[in-house]
Simulated scan of single mutants.
Amino acid sequence: MTPLTREDFRLRPADLADMPAVYRVCLKTGNAGQDATDREDDPDALGHMFIGPYLVLEPDFAFVLDGPNGVAGYVMGALDTPDFYLRMERDWLSRIRGRVRDPGDDESRWFGSDWVRRLIHRPPYLYPPALHPYPSHGHVDFLPEARGLGWGRLGFEHLMTALKDAGSPGMHLDVSPHNHSAIAFYRKLGFAPVISDELPSGGLTMARRF
């Protein structure tokens, strides 16, 4: 099989018809960048929480990477985090909850996708003052076939330019502290860890000004 090259892919605006494809990418990259299929008993739960609302609520900042095998990744963001969280609660999660059971607070009874189900019913909506200088936020996930070709940088720079042109002074993002390749990727794009007691311990938030 001939290796894929950068020219085999193109970045384009996402639309609602891409929903199944971006949900698949979210699942296939949902374990700190690796495939989460075997871990999750609900293949849609990760997409419901982490990518669906961006595609629906922030279409001006939603882009997918097309390749020979279809959608191979996405880069999506929100311009105004507190406003986005308000609309996510009102217009998205309030509807999703009717299809997703609440596993409750007792983590000892959780299994499969219960950790995501709990987030759907009790989202953290973290936006402490430490993040206010960076009011936008974003996500990028690519399947292995699209990695190492420069599209991660190109895609995220495209998102940052769109956010900046819309008036944002900066953005933040959450990354697994165990995903060292992602941390290195964001550092190369100018992001740095946000150190603050206002943020949860055990996680990692990175940010940069535009």
Rank of each mutant, 00 (worst) to 15 (best):
M1V: 13
T2P: 15
P3L: 03
E7Q: 12
L11S: 04
P13C: 03
A14F: 06
A14G: 10
A14W: 03
L16N: 03
M19Y: 07
M19R: 15
A21C: 09
A21K: 05
V22L: 12
V22P: 01
R24Y: 02
C26D: 03
L27Y: 03
K28D: 08
T29M: 04
G30T: 05
G30E: 06
G30N: 06
N31D: 15
A32H: 14
G33R: 02
A36M: 06
T37L: 11
T37D: 08
E40P: 02
D42S: 10
D44A: 14
D44V: 10
A45E: 09
G47M: 07
M49V: 12
M49I: 09
G52H: 08
V56Q: 09
L57A: 08
E58K: 06
E58L: 11
D60H: 13
F63P: 01
F63H: 10
V64K: 01
D66L: 13
P68L: 08
V71G: 02
A72K: 02
P82Y: 13
Y85T: 01
L86F: 12
R87V: 04
M88L: 14
R90A: 15
S94N: 10
R95E: 09
V100S: 05
V100N: 09
G104T: 05
D105V: 09
D106M: 10
R109T: 13
W110V: 01
F111K: 14
G112T: 05
G112H: 04
W115T: 09
W115P: 00
R118Y: 15
H121W: 14
R122T: 05
R122S: 12
P123E: 08
P124Y: 09
P128R: 07
P129C: 11
A130P: 05
L131S: 01
H132Y: 03
P133A: 03
Y134R: 02
P135H: 11
P135L: 13
H137R: 12
H137W: 11
G138T: 02
H139R: 13
D141Y: 07
E145R: 10
G148K: 04
L149I: 06
G150H: 02
G150Q: 05
G152D: 00
R153S: 10
R153P: 00
G155N: 00
G155M: 03
E157A: 09
H158C: 11
M160V: 12
T161I: 09
L163R: 11
K164H: 14
A166T: 07
A166Q: 06
G167Y: 07
G170C: 10
H172G: 07
L173F: 02
D174T: 15
D174L: 14
S176Y: 06
S181N: 10
A184R: 15
F185D: 01
Y186E: 03
R187L: 01
R187P: 00
K188W: 03
F191E: 11
F191S: 07
A192P: 04
V194P: 04
S196Q: 13
S201W: 09
S201R: 15
G202T: 10
G203F: 09
G203S: 14
T205E: 05
M206Y: 12
R208Y: 05
R209Q: 12
